[in-house]
Design a binder for these strands. Structure first.
Lengths: 164, 164
DNA sequence: TATTGTTATACTCTATAACTATA
DNA sequence: TATAGTTATAGAGTATAACAATA
């Protein structure tokens, strides 16, 4: 974001070390997959965060609810290994979602230690609406990417993190 | 990561609600750009973190050193806006890199408030080696992605986060 | 008046150790 | 003995407010 050409006093002084930097060279970083993946993820998540504001859901909370919706009876342990979060960090989230009466813990049918997670009717409605919003956000990126590019991008991303 | 087919007792009970989940359906989440971008970024950064261990550099510290290397005299403010980090959070990092004698603060040639950042000889050597390692890590992904796919992926990621 | 660098501080996210009850 | 869920806690990472020196 530095202005294009102010203070032209410090131009082409090829030998003097104490020169000011005007245009920042980011070419090396931009050649790295990690740098670009992180920047893109942050940009998309930022948009997602804004879109989920009416539902008071952060990205991970949305992921949890969506997984419970499509996998009624899923356990905490399964959520953790699927989403890559640690059990102690899930507990508070599940408590909060239960207090909001979006999900309910029920005893697991075969494992007395585990609890199966289920959506309440209110949770089902919220997830339906939130997933619709997520799809809309997704479509919003079609302004920068064609549908084909979006498909390609997602396919390549999967190739990167699957079989890690 | 649940085992494929243990406890076959709880199979095809199509009507009973309290059933155990065996294979987790993640298809909706996997259709979302944000989910895939985050997972991919985490996977790559994980690999990067391991590769940078001998240099004792975290991804952001590597980014800072690399930017200083290619832009000698760059200011803290410029680093912050380029990398999307906040000034208070950069201070400690620069202090630490200075204490490790990898960078040096010198007075800015035209702005008395600012400090220009420069690499020490030790810093230059470290960055050269670390960038070589970064390129190697990058090449390591060629096992999952062809060089053409990697180029396409990076180009599409740029499209996503530029013009955000 | 605005900006650079800085301190202090708070809030979130992520990680580790240890306990309980079931398997 | 191992695993699911939980508690407590520690450590990163990220955020805002406010100040001194300079523009």
């Amino acid at each position: 974001m530095p202005r294009p050409a102010a203070a032209a006093r410090t131009t082409h002084s090829n030998t003097a070390p104490p020169a000011a930097v005007e245009d920042i060279d980011t070419s090396f970083l931009e050649s790295l997959l990690g740098y670009n993946a992180r920047r893109a993820a942050l940009a998309v998540i930022d948009r997602f965060l804004a879109g989920m504001e009416p539902y008071q859901l952060k990205p991970v909370e949305f992921s949890v609810l969506s997984l419970v919706a499509h996998n009624p009876g899923i356990t905490s342990r399964q959520l953790c290994s699927t989403l890559g979060i640690l059990p102690p960090n899930l507990v508070g989230m599940v408590n909060m979602l239960e207090k909001r009466e979006l999900i309910a813990r029920r005893p697991h049918p075969t494992d007395g230690r585990a609890m199966g997670l289920h959506l309440t009717p209110a949770g089902q409605k919220l997830v339906r609406d939130a997933e619709k919003t997520a799809a809309t956000i997704e479509a919003g990126f079609a302004s920068r990417l064609t549908p084909a590019e979006l498909r390609t991008l997602i396919a390549l991303l999967k190739k990167v993190y699957k079989a890690a």
